[in-house]
Structures are given as C-alpha cells and as structure tokens.
C-alpha cells in the first residue's frame, strides 16, 4: 500500500517533470537563433522559398500554438517526424532538398526506439565496469581510513576525475585498437564494440562511486551500532558485509540516481567519438543539423528515463533503509 501510494505519486510528479522538460527544450530551440529551414532548403535557396517552407512546416506560428500541436501528438505517442532523415534511414545530403512536410520522413519515435537499446547496452556495461573497479577500491578505502588503501582510493579517484573522457577515448583507440589491434573501436558490428567505449565511461563514473563509498562506509564504521556489534558477538565479516555495507549503500544508491545525468552526458560524447550507433550519436548529428523534432524527442526520452530510474533508486533506498522518506 505504501509502495503503491509512492508509485502513483512519483509517476504523477514524473509526468510533470517530463512536461516541464519538454516545455523548456521546445522553447529554447525556438528562441535561440538558428533557422532549421535554411539548412533544409540549402544555403542557395531564395528567402521566399525559406518562408514558404517554414510556414508550411508551421514554424512561423506562435510558439504556444506550435507547442500545443506538439503536445497533442505527444499524447498519442507521436513525437513527430525528423526534418532530415527519410524513412530509408539515409541522411539527406546537405543542400539536397527533401520536402520535410511529406510523409516519407522517418518518425522520431522509430529513430529513438531503434537507437535506445544500443545506448542502454553501453550504459549498462559502463555501470557494471565502474562498479567492478570501484567496489574493491572503495570498500578497502572505507574500512581502512588511515592506511594505504584509503590513499589508493583517494589517488585513483583524483586521477580518474582528471582525465577528460574524449582524450582517454582517443588514446585508447590509438593504442588498443589501431596499434595493438586488441579490440575494435569504431562503429558497431557486435558485442566487442561495446567494451572500449564502456571502459572509457566507467573511468568517468568510477571516481564518484569510489568517493561516496569510502566516505559513507567510513562514516558507518564509526556508528555506535557497528562498535556494539562486536560486543554482541558478531564476527567482523558479518558486521562489515551484512550491516556496514547495507547502511553505506543508501548514499551510494542515491548518488547513482543523481550521477545518472553525468552518465547520459558521457554516453553522448563517447558515442560520437566511437561512432557508436546510439542515442548520443543521433543527438550530436541532429543538433548540428537543427533537426528539432529529433532533439525534442531525445530530450523527452532521456528525462523520462531519468525520472524512471530515480523512482527505482528511491524505491531501492527505501527497501534498504525503511527510514528513508518516500
């Protein structure tokens, strides 16, 4: 019953958040300079052609009208159609005029659904790698506050946080892929293409996990109930693994919810560098091409994913620690 109330409330709140997000992104796209029509019709087209196409596409209506139209579509699950990509999946070459009002343009929903699994796969692997790196280091650092394990965790976290992801990506591509030919890097032709980008992303996320884990575990180990567990007769293994870690997990789970946007942001850049066919790559290409419906669709999708994962995060935090307010 408590969980049901929580879900209903949070989903309602989530819808509100997604709605505000869509409003922000929709307005931003239309108030900042940069006319998509100019790109669609090509630089050479005379201004009256631009105006004609723009009016036909509805881009000259007041923003509120455009937004209403967009929302109506959204409620029916329709995110609109791409300005640039035809159904066949080929990008219209610059200057070549494809009429974006015709129905042969790819629906944004399809474009996103096609790419989403790739991105989720990459994100999931990256998270897994990050946890594999940071758990041993973070736990050791948290348990031994004044020993070398803590210094190791501190050093590793400072180092990782200081490596720009794109730079690491280039270096890894150069050495592991081009020189040593250990792993494939560019494009996507199978699972092995995920490993390198996932490693780069993992290095980006790991320092946050290490830091939270060392701090929160260190704090929990000072708690009176951990101290008293010893005199109650529990073994050290039991104290650490079934009580201290459990309590230290709550801040960690919350952190994952908040750092999710870093992860998504990282995915975007990494996909672009590795030419990985996910949502991030699509975003960069769409932004450069001013493909408004695709950008909007992606923003709404990521914010929905963000909201959804944060609901799960809070639920997990509650299941671990019943004192957490949900």
């Amino acid at each position: 019953m408590l969980i049901l109330e929580f879900l209903v409330k949070r989903i309602a709140q989530g819808l509100l958040i997604v709605f505000i997000t869509s409003l922000i992104i929709f307005t931003l796209l239309r108030v900042v300079p940069g006319d998509p029509v100019r790109l669609i019709v090509g630089g050479m087209a005379p201004p009256d052609v631009v105006e004609k196409v723009a009016t036909k596409m509805g881009l000259r209506d007041p923003i509120i009208v455009q937004y209403g139209r967009y929302m109506r579509g959204l409620l029916q699950g329709d995110l609109g159609q791409s300005y640039l990509r035809p159904r066949s999946g080929m990008i219209a070459a610059g200057g070549q005029y494809v009429d974006p009002t015709k129905s042969d343009m790819a629906p944004v929903t399809d474009l996103i659904l096609e790419r989403l699994p790739f991105t989720l796969q990459l994100g999931g692997m990256a998270l897994l790698f990050a946890l594999l790196i940071s758990f041993p280091v973070g736990i050791a650092g948290g348990l031994h506050q004044h020993r070398w394990q803590n210094a190791l965790a501190f050093g590793m976290q400072s180092l990782f946080v200081s490596i720009p992801n794109f730079w690491l990506a280039i270096v890894l591509i150069l050495f592991l892929s081009v020189k040593l030919k250990l792993l494939p890097a560019l494009g996507y032709q199978g699972f092995s293409y995920v490993i390198l980008p996932a490693v780069v992303l993992a290095v980006e996320i790991a320092p946050f996990i290490i830091r939270t884990l060392t701090t929160s575990l260190g704090e929990v180990m000072q708690a009176p109930f951990i101290d008293e567990a010893r005199v109650r007769g529990l073994s050290r293994r039991r104290i650490v693994y079934s009580h201290a870690l459990r309590n230290a997990a709550v801040p960690l789970v919350n952190l994952l919810g908040i750092q999710l946007s870093t992860l998504i942001g990282g995915v975007l850049v990494i996909e672009y560098i590795f030419d990985y066919p996910g949502l991030g790559n699509l975003t960069v290409v769409s932004v450069v091409g001013r493909d408004f419906p695709v950008i909007q669709g992606i923003a709404i999708t990521t914010s929905a994913v963000f909201v959804f994962i944060n609901i799960i995060v809070d639920l997990v935090a509650y299941l671990i620690d019943p004192r957490v307010e949900i």
Binding site: F225, V231, R232, R246, I320, D321, R323
Partner: peptide, 16 residues
C-alpha cells in the same frame, strides 16, 4: 559475557 549499554536507540542496525 554480555553487555547492555546506555544508548539503546543506536545499538542496533537501523535498517534491519
């Protein structure tokens, strides 16, 4: 040998 302390509220793991 068993022990009872003066801070019962913080003697047990709050999550179990």
């Amino acid at each position: 040998i068993a022990y009872i302390g003066s801070k019962p509220q913080s003697s047990l793991d709050p999550t179990v």
